[in-house]
Nucleic acid binder design. Structure first.
Length: 469
RNA sequence: GCUCUCAUCGUCUAGUGGCCUAGGACACUGCCCUCUCACGGCAGGAACAGGGGUUCGACUCCCCUUGAGAGUACCA
């Protein structure tokens, strides 16, 4: 039994797209599941659009996601000699030929075919022409003219194409550079790929690739064409739908595990299970339960998963990433609680780390304005005795910890014969500027003695000022 | 146009001929918990695209229609 070898082959023409990662994840999972190898290959033969900075972001994104590879990254541009060698062999064997047709002729041909409602394709003009001309040429693969080429797709089942539908595709451009459909075949063959898992926009390429592979005498791998991810409008997921690059998800405060969990369930299921550890994904993933229809990306569900993983995470493990988010939000954390303690009280009420950072400003810096509604509702003259009573008690607290602070609030409510909410809410607005925060006692503790007392005094002044009007 | 692919609640999905008066999750609504928010708990509305077959019996198998997507490049 040969070992499973899968690959992920992004092209560095942009950021790493979440759709690509969706497919790559399945590829990675299969390799892990069968204790095989996962290979990373950068398809950079499009010199015009490939950039090395994109290679870097792809590598970084893979690392952030924790999708490690056993081999690579390989670069197609470093394998040019190999492609040339194969092309020469094909030429020698008569399995490929020089085509001298001009772009103009091809364009004209295409227009005519379209006008006649025919499928545009190369007409084989140079197929049987053996003279060597002294003018620019491309190399075409001599595709079989008859018969069918079929394969059993891991997700779609049996698929077959008539060779008569295919034409002689170009495998090397006029400048000698090899094209995609040719390189993939050579690479997958050379790298011993056993499972070609890719987006289903490649199904139409598959029969051509199989024909080339056969010409090369290679053994066909298993193909698995994963359905595309759609945006909410039913169109292919793209930038105009919001975040699509992995980097963007990170910047937006998502956790890699949440994203992976979301993606693994997008198109695949294991009964009713929604939450998967990495080990469970590896253990349970299979093509039998992979849907063959395209799925729509739903940010709401991702958000839910992210909150779930935020809640489950050890606070210490979130410190580093939150630190970066705080910096980005322009909040200096030098004067305020430890991030670990902050995370501990905030994580379960936030959907993302960005969310967490934004909701935590008042722990580190004084606010200049109160939330208008909260202020109008809670900082009124009736509240003055409440705040004063709380203030007096708080000032006597020597050990500034949640427990004694909680007692102060309770005692005030009892003294003034008020429901707890009538005391807690005004204090909350006083110390946070808004109506939402973690439980009051821990909030007081984390904001600290000095700041808390100061803010309550300020709030009392606000209430008194309101009296004048 | 041609070729290929796809079709269950708004969304992700369970369902592999009888277990389906179609299950779960997200979202939504209501209630409970409660110092706010969130968490958690409970309840509710919400789907088999349409039409033909096959079968004792179709969400499940076949065909057609409709709709959607992909490819049709000297891009990948």
């Amino acid at each position: 039994m040969t070992t499973v070898r899968t690959r992920f082959a992004p092209s560095p023409t942009g950021h790493l797209h979440v759709g690509s990662v969706h497919t790559a994840l399945y590829s990675w999972l299969i390799a892990k599941k069968y204790k095989g190898q996962f290979i990373l290959r950068i398809e950079d033969t499009d010199l015009e659009r490939s950039e090395s900075t994109h290679v870097q972001t792809i590598l970084q994104s893979m690392e952030w996601l924790g999708m490690d590879y056993d081999e690579g990254p390989y670069f197609q541009t470093q394998r040019l000699a190999r492609y040339k060698e194969v092309i020469d062999q094909l030429l020698k064997d008569g399995l490929a030929y020089r085509c001298y047709c001009s772009k103009e002729r091809l364009e004209h041909l295409r227009e005519c075919q379209l006008a006649n409602k025919e499928k545009p394709r190369y007409d084989g003009c140079c197929r049987n022409q053996h003279e060597f001309k002294d003018c620019p040429f491309v190399i075409r693969f001599r595709n079989p003219e008859e018969g069918v080429v079929a394969f059993d797709d891991l997700v779609h089942g049996h698929i077959e194409f008539q060779n008569s539908e295919l034409d002689d595709l170009i495998i090397a451009r006029a400048d000698g550079s090899p094209t995609y459909n040719f390189c993939v075949v050579v690479d997958d063959l050379d790298m011993g790929i056993t499972h070609v898992i890719r987006g289903d926009d490649h199904v139409n390429n598959t029969p051509r690739q199989i024909n080339i592979l056969r010409a090369l005498g290679g053994k066909e791998p298993l193909y698995g064409h994963v359905p595309t991810i759609l945006g909410p409008d039913g169109k292919k997921l793209s930038k105009r739908h919001g975040a699509v690059s992995i980097q963007q998800f990170r910047d937006d405060g998502f956790l890699p595990h949440a994203l992976l969990n979301y993606l693994v369930r997008l198109g695949w299921s294991h009964g009713d299970q929604e939450i998967f550890s990495l080990d469970e994904m590896i253990e349970y993933f299979d093509f039998d339960h992979l849907n063959n229809s395209p799925a729509t990306f739903d940010i709401e569900k991702l958000l839910w998963l992210n909150q779930h993983y935020l809640k489950e995470a050890k606070s210490e493990d979130l410190v580093q990433e939150l630190d970066a988010q705080m910096a980005k939000a322009g909040v200096s954390i030098l004067d305020g609680p430890d991030l670990v303690d902050l995370i501990q009280v905030q994580k379960e009420r936030c959907k993302t780390l960005v969310d967490l950072a934004e909701k935590s400003r008042y722990f580190y810096e004084d606010f200049t304005e109160y939330d208008e509604k909260a202020k109008a509702k809670n900082l009124k003259k009736e509240v003055i005795p409440v705040l004063q009573s709380v203030l007096t008690k708080l000032e006597l607290v020597s050990h500034w910890k949640a427990e004694p602070l909680h007692a102060c609030i309770l005692q005030t409510a009892e003294d003034l014969d008020l429901k707890l909410g009538k005391v807690a809410q005004p204090v909350r607005v006083a110390i946070t500027g808004g109506s939402v925060s973690p439980p009051l006692d821990v909030t007081l503790e984390l904001i600290g003695r000095h700041r808390s007392l100061h803010r309550i005094k300020e709030a009392i002044q606000i209430c008194e000022a309101g009296l004048l009007h």
